[in-house]
Amino acid sequence: MSKTMISTKRLSKSYGKSGQVIALDKLTLDVYEGETFGLLGPNGAGKTTTVRLLNCIVKPTGGSATVGGYDLIENSIEIKRMTGLLAESPGLYEKLSAQEFLEFMGALYDVPSDILSVRVDKLLKLFGLHGRRNHLLEGYSRGMKQKVLIAAALIHDPPLLFFDEPTSTLDPSAALMVRDLMKDLSENVGKTIVVCSHILPIVEELCDRIGIINRGELVAVGTVDELMERTGKDTLEKAYIDITGGVQQKELLSWRELRSA
């Protein structure tokens, strides 16, 4: 077994004054170097919270963790340097052009300027944005912004990458491109990748292992095959639904019952 890249012990996070909202509850998990790890779970399960914790954006309220051998609290600067993050609802500077924004991000991560300009150019070409690189981001569509943000996450070429719903706003071919990009990053240059997604086929294809979070708790970890075996289902989708509590039988159309004449 290869080295562990991420290791968490009873890592917890609650929000609110007296911690009413428990976003993540005692997560204990190892992610290994070079592996692509998928985080699944229903809306509000705690995936984004986990990613934010591991990128030192929010502080844990309990437990401990190491990322790349660095302690989450003691060595946050080293961790930030070695991780790249595509956030779920990221901020960007609308009044900068794509090129200017990527140069800004490069400066934030101290990428030497000669490397930076070449890299920005190549990334913009890769995402098909080179032709509009001088347009302000305020005029970009959501998917185009997403592409810029993915490029921004890669700008310092970090060994560990987090993608929080990378393809949710992309068109089908761009989504496939990003999927292949993640695959390349993992297979050819040995990056460790953590990806949160609701799009199961992509997760199934990319991820070596999958963790399923439900209401802040890690309820299952394993390869796709292990998860299907454990639940006795024949697809990942069925296994996922089984693990996260199944589809409740609800009267889906009951809201129509009182109709005006």
């Binding site: 990128n55 030192c56 954006i57 600067i77 080293e78 930030k80 340097r81 991780t83 993050l85 956030a87 609802s89 990221p90 901020g91 960007l92 500077y93 991000m105 934030l108 991560y109 101290d110």
Partner: peptide, 19 residues
């Protein structure tokens, strides 16, 4: 005014807040 998400760009970067 650009919101928390914008501040998180800096938070994510090493010594981002100070910068």
């Amino acid at each position: 005014v650009r919101g928390k998400e914008n501040l998180f760009i800096y938070r994510k970067a090493p010594r981002g807040e100070a910068r």
